[in-house]
Amino acid sequence: MGAVKTPQITNGLSVDVEDWFQVGAFEKVIDRSQWSSMSLRVEDNVMRILDLFDEADVKATFFTLGWVAKRHGPLMRRIVEKGHELASHGYDHGRVFNFDRKQFAGDIKLARMILEDAGGVKITGYRAPSFSIDSRTPWAYLELAEQGYAYSSSVAPIVHDHYGWREAPRFAFKPLPWSDLVEIPVTTAILGGKRVAAGGGGFFRVLPYAFSRWAIRQVNRDEQRPAVFYFHPWEIDPGQPRVGHAPVRSKLRHYTNLDKMAGKLGELVHDFAWGRMDTIAYREAQLAGELPSEETA
């Protein structure tokens, strides 16, 4: 009798929908007042991503800026028609730790209103720009819960020069003991006894694909948990404009391996089982009685 095969875990696949000039690496050299005059490339890039997902027969979540949705309504409807989840990435990529609670409340309310109008669906998921929910923003989850969000995927439980909440749990947790709201951090793996980023973005572009494959397998096999992976539409666009006056570090962070990203994503979507983040959140919420709260994790 053959060995029993372990059922494949469905991982969370997500796209943070923002254009090339809206990224954290350029926030100090491209002012928001300049955005409307920039070349918009996000629609073509998202259409390429939708084709990739169709070919691999996978569904994903598109965490989208309200600023983008306001200008690309038909694209939002296309995402929904393809069976993917439309979710909020805030309005204009403002980091949560730069807001107070009132400002944050206004940002997520405006973004949600625009997204729901554009996509014709209820928005229940949120991802903070640059994973900017951390120990400085205890009110953020209160506001998300009060506005009716079902889940957030806004925490990177690592140390990073732009973001990170080192003390946060690595896997889904309840940030509020009285609420059903679930936080699902982006994936980390354990290497040499330390947490390392393994959930996509620049780390995925720069490091060999073998690292990401190893890390996701570790999370699925050894810890029996879903991985959470993310990337951006501009990361598959090597022809995007260059910001010559940006700091060297920012340019290295943004432009490295853009020409290799689409090929690596093609491998990734075929090597693992993928699904929408709301599906992952629902399954994690079913475990809510077993999930730790942030205070005890």
Rank of each mutant, 00 (worst) to 15 (best):
G263H: 12
L144H: 02
R225W: 03
I108H: 04
D180W: 05
L268G: 02
V243A: 12
E81D: 15
S212G: 06
K194W: 03
R71L: 10
R166K: 12
I236A: 02
E167Q: 14
K109P: 10
H245W: 14
A198M: 09
V46N: 13
E43C: 08
Y126L: 08
R48G: 00
Q286G: 00
K102L: 01
E146M: 07
D237E: 07
L181P: 04
M38L: 08
E167L: 12
A150K: 12
T137F: 07
A262W: 05
I190K: 15
G94L: 15
W165E: 05
P138R: 13
A168D: 02
S152W: 05
F204N: 03
S132T: 10
H89M: 11
R71C: 01
W20Q: 08
H89E: 06
V219W: 07
E55Y: 14
W178K: 09
A210H: 05
F229T: 01
E267T: 00
G12E: 03
I133S: 10
V58A: 01
I30Y: 14
V23I: 12
F26I: 12
A288C: 08
G201M: 01
P157A: 09
V196R: 15
V269R: 06
L40R: 13
K194S: 02
W234M: 06
I280D: 02
K251N: 13
R221P: 00
W20M: 06
A150R: 14
L252R: 14
Y141E: 09
A262K: 12
T10M: 09
F272P: 02
I280H: 03
L268I: 02
L142S: 06
F26V: 11
T10E: 09
N11K: 15
V42D: 13
A197H: 11
Y230R: 03
H160Q: 14
K59N: 03
V23K: 11
S33E: 15
D16Y: 14
V58H: 11
G199S: 08
F173S: 08
V219I: 11
K59I: 03
E223Y: 15
M261E: 06
E116P: 03
L65R: 15
R136L: 10
T256A: 14
K194M: 03
P247F: 11
M113I: 05
R41A: 03
S135D: 14
A105W: 00
V15Q: 12
P292H: 07
E290G: 06
G199I: 01
Y151G: 00
P226S: 05
F229R: 06
D16F: 11
A56T: 01
M47I: 10
E290F: 09
G263P: 07
V269N: 04
H84V: 07
D117L: 08
T61D: 01
F231P: 12
G106H: 08
N257W: 03
P169A: 11
P247Y: 07
V23T: 15
S152N: 11
D278M: 01
A118Y: 07
Y163G: 02
L65V: 08
P169Q: 10
Q34C: 12
I158P: 06
Y149E: 07
E43R: 15
V182H: 11
S212M: 13
V96K: 03
Y282V: 04
L142F: 09
Y209K: 07
M38T: 00
F99A: 04
P292Q: 10
G266K: 07
E294D: 09
E284Q: 14
P74L: 05
D57N: 13
L252N: 09
